[in-house]
Amino acid sequence: MSFTTHTTRSGFLLPSIHSVPPFFTEQPNPTTQSQNISQWTRLILAYARHRRLFVLRLEDAETSGGDWDEVLRNERINRRVLPSHLSAIMESMITNGQAVYEPPKQTRAVLLYWRLPEEWAEVLHSWATDTANLNTILTFYEITDPPVPSPLSDIPITLLRRVIAVLAKTGRAQVISTGRTGSGEENEGVRFFSGGK
């Protein structure tokens, strides 16, 4: 038997370890377990980046049919990640700053940082510069759903807020409250400034 890489239907290249049966079991030896977790973390973040997935939930391991089936399951060897295993992986990602619990104060869903907020900040700022959106007020919606798809399309609002906060710290962005919409939601906007780093 030999362990090979596999290209999924979405065009993602799974590493050869994904075809190794024990990869899908939590390891009782702490050293082995930490290797297992770090391999999983790398795989999950790479897949999230490939498919632009921002959220990982325990449900993804509990039931099939979600966005994560290609990674959390391997039908070819009949193995899947069990929820407790996924929970341990999530916990380690939180500890290493590669994800945050979202919403906070629960442990069933995480927001994945396949780019750190600091990295997103640079992406966001150069997007604003390139699209000539400096010094004007943009709504969050205009950023997450721009007419021309951008690297920031579909970025979750919670992550966007953190990213803007990073820029605000260096004086390159300012959050502006534009009152409330008819439905009572707070309507927020942001203004970007060129500002050197």
Binding site: F3, P21, F24, T25, E26, T32
Partner: peptide, 24 residues
């Protein structure tokens, strides 16, 4: 070795990575 708790025939098998053939 690594533990596999989803083994079809025994439910618990052991895997020795150094005895496995890996294709990069």
């Amino acid at each position: 070795c690594w533990l596999d708790e989803q083994d079809e025939s025994t439910g618990r098998s052991y895997w020795v990575p150094s005895a496995m053939r890996w294709d990069e």
